[in-house]
Design a protein around this nucleic acid. Structure first.
Lengths: 212, 212
DNA sequence: GCAAAAGTGTTGTGTCTACACCCATGT
DNA sequence: ACATGGGTGTAGACACAACACTTTTGC
């Protein structure tokens, strides 16, 4: 589960209470119940164990089946990427903490690779879909959105060009409201929102497209 | 498993010999053995059941966990996309046949959705990766390659522009040889090959890229 | 007035499509 | 010669990055 907090992309991890990898940090999750869907299972585990219900987006990453990924027994895992909008602060239990993805501790199993795969998926999709909605609060200024993109992408982003790309694609719309300027002055910023809060592909990067 | 045969994208299906969906067409596959990797399992099943070993590319599609996807018992499936180069003609058993993806029969389980997901994944990747290598024979003329793209994409593709895109990106390289012209005459075509036969992303469609 | 922050205008670049044109072969 | 199929040259559309410039606020 990823979220931008304090200008950094962070992952929610919890400290294992048993072997294998006792006391190591690991991704929240758990076993599938018979008759349950993978997605149901994830939402259940997150709700029960870390009390997180405000997932704005959830998508399958990959299935891991390497024989010795769990040293104790053969086990298959389905990795998911979940995104929580900035500025929500779910109450999480004691043994749970947010860790910057750029400075992960040693992780249990293959969880480090999973977190990085999730980050990369997010980075890619920020470019050609509207996933931004899952990182952003309901309304925001363009500089705020820019800061979220910077945190997730790990490099500078120009608010000017971000605005143009997202408006041209019809991803954002202005709310008509503006935010009062701070004590340092400056022109009040317009507020925007994502036009849709469901994943949509906005850049059809199809280079070989149908004629016409 | 997909292949372009006779100018159409086709899927290898086999007719089920037991319930559920007795006699319906379905995707080749089978159960995972303990200690086995998903990929190992797929290759094993394909080798044993349909005697196909010349997969040029294999990638995970998605994991299906819907409760009643199998009416008899709760079961989870991992869908993979496998590609076989054109002009290989694997010997397949009696109860097995290639079916054009555009005219699938009724399929067992959720296999129809899987085939379509595989097709869509292939279509997308033809645009921004070098997956073409998995559809093409070792050497080919540009018109031959164009025909493969047309079959897979389902719309016209200009050989002229295909050549430019793939050469500019460094995906293809000329072999230096040419193919003699047919009985109708015409300039002999140059032969090309894919520079690499491993999946590579060739179009970084990253719209918000690092400055510099 | 001046600094700060937001937003607009404009120019240049690269990648792609479309289409005209040129090249090499068989009959 | 000319039809056939392959390849090259070129112009226009478009999306984007970069950067100069304008707008609106606080002090």
């Amino acid at each position: 589960m990823l979220q931008v907090r304090g200008a950094r992309l962070q992952a929610l991890l919890w400290q294992r209470a048993r072997e294998p990898f006792l006391a190591a940090w690991s991704l929240p999750g758990g076993y599938l119940e018979p008759g349950e869907t993978l997605e149901e299972s994830i939402r259940r585990h997150l709700a029960v164990k870390v009390d997180v219900r405000e997932l704005a987006h959830l998508e399958q990453l990959e299935t891991l089946s390497e024989a010795h990924r769990n040293p104790l027994e053969w086990e298959i895992a389905n990795a998911y990427l979940g995104l929580v909008p900035a500025e929500v602060d779910p109450v999480v239990p004691e043994d749970t903490r947010w860790h910057p993805v750029s400075r992960l501790p040693e992780l249990a199993f293959d969880h480090r690779a999973i977190v990085l795969a999730g980050r990369d998926r997010l980075r890619a999709k920020l470019s050609y879909t509207n996933v931004g909605f899952a990182l952003a609060p309901p309304e925001f200024t363009l500089s705020e959105l820019r800061d979220l993109y910077v945190a997730a992408l790990g490099h500078e982003v120009s608010a000017t060009n971000l605005q143009r790309v997202l408006l041209r694609r019809g991803v954002l719309e202005p709310t008509g409201e503006r935010r009062a300027s701070g004590r340092a002055g400056g022109r009040p910023a317009e507020l925007y929102r994502f036009r849709s809060r469901r994943l949509t592909i906005t850049d059809q990067f199809a280079v070989l497209r149908p004629p016409g």
